[in-house]
Simulated scan of single mutants.
Amino acid sequence: MYKVFITLFYCLIFTAASQGQVLTGADRTEGYLPLLSGKRVALLVNQTAMIGHTHLVDSLLKLHVHIQKIFSPEHGFRGNADAGEKVGNSTDASTGLTIVSLYGKHRKADAADLQDVDILLFDIQDVGTRFYTYISSLQEFMESAAENNKPLIVLDRPNPNGHYVDGPILEDTSLRSFVGMQPIPIVHGMTVGEYAYMLNGEKWLKNGVECKLTVIPCKGYDDHTFYQLPVKPSPNLPNMAAIYLYPSTCLFEGTVLSLGRGTDLPFQVFGHPSFPKDLYKFTPRSTSGAKEPPLKNVTCYGYNLTGTPEAVRAEMDNKLQLKWLLQAYDLYPEKENFFTPFFNKLAGNTTLQRQIKQGLSEADIRETWEPALTQFKTIRKKYLLYAE
């Protein structure tokens, strides 16, 4: 058995290393397999939990880890459900394991879910923004672990937007939701492992509980590493251009515009039927992962922001870009109808919408973020695992 384990272990590490110099927490099996030995394990994972070309669940089963059940986040275990789509409990066809959905009304694993479990494991690829719901799932998983006295292992992964911190802080507690649960900026510059330490250390878990937490860090990674995600993290982030643009273009989710859901370029284009007809043209359609996109089957006119990952990352200039949102607001003829109620939840305040309506410049808006960003960066430093 020992020789089998060693052979498989080195195969897994070789596969991961061949993709680049970065080893994720999942790749570093020597750090967490001993913690799983003889335990009944439950994992909160999705399609991004990979060791090389093999899913973490399959790898652990081959290593005779006793997996009791799988918990799944938004978009489901296989990552193909629409944003916000209800995903029920099921059975994984390939392994026969029970899958318990932690999205929708049943977002937290309860005592009944965990009564036959000894230890929990979290492995999901995040993209580094407050409104990407996987860090909200992480928080509630940590709360479940603490409340039910279960240890939790977080297998860390690089943050593709970890090279900067920017945007307004969530400052209005009435706007807290699953797309923003804590007073952090839109772009927080932390991996899920670092953020887990922050949730514990700042006593941000419900009722101030503290999770018995182990983080398996990445190797060969720092905040400026260019890391190409090997698996798309959700249906509408299909490539690195979308991932780099997402912190800025996701704000269009709180407007009447289309941001390309239902096209080949989600989060990489934006537009509306009322915009000038000589602009970039696209038509959202019902697609897998975007069955009912905004402005479905309606021709929109707007802008195509996509390009090579390197070009898009350079265009972002290490900051959240407001210029496209301001441009769209200027173009839209019925300005009183431009924003939807969801916008303030994404922004984390009512201030940004008011500033845009008042005609403030991007520079003036950004200046109002600085005091809170400076304070957040001071707090953040306490929990960093990697060089900035």
Rank of each mutant, 00 (worst) to 15 (best):
R78F: 14
N80C: 12
N80L: 14
A81F: 14
A83F: 13
G84R: 02
K86D: 14
K86N: 10
G88W: 03
G88K: 13
D92A: 09
A93P: 07
A93I: 15
G96Q: 06
G96T: 08
T98P: 07
I99D: 06
I99W: 02
V100M: 05
S101Q: 08
L102M: 15
L102K: 10
L102D: 09
Y103T: 07
R107N: 06
K108D: 05
D110C: 12
D113L: 07
L114I: 10
D116G: 06
V117A: 01
I119C: 10
L121P: 10
L121R: 00
F122C: 08
I124V: 15
D126M: 07
D126F: 11
V127K: 02
G128K: 01
G128E: 09
R130Y: 06
F131N: 13
F131K: 05
F131T: 12
Y132G: 06
Y132R: 06
Y132P: 13
Y132S: 06
T133S: 15
T133D: 12
Y134S: 05
S136M: 01
S136N: 07
S137Y: 02
L138M: 15
L138C: 11
L138R: 03
Q139G: 14
Q139M: 15
Q139Y: 04
M142E: 08
E143K: 00
S144R: 04
A146E: 08
N149I: 05
N149T: 12
N149C: 11
V154I: 15
L155F: 11
D156Y: 06
P158A: 04
P160H: 02
P160T: 09
N161V: 08
Y164T: 10
Y164L: 08
Y164N: 04
V165W: 01
V165M: 06
D166K: 00
D166E: 04
D166F: 01
P168Q: 00
P168S: 13
I169D: 00
E171W: 00
T173K: 05
L175P: 10
R176F: 12
S177K: 01
G180L: 04
M181A: 15
M181H: 01
Q182E: 12
P183S: 07
I184N: 02
G189Y: 02
M190W: 03
T191V: 06
V192K: 00
V192I: 14
G193R: 00
G193S: 07
Y195Q: 05
A196P: 12
A196F: 09
A196Q: 03
Y197N: 12
Y197G: 11
N200W: 04
G201W: 03
E202A: 13
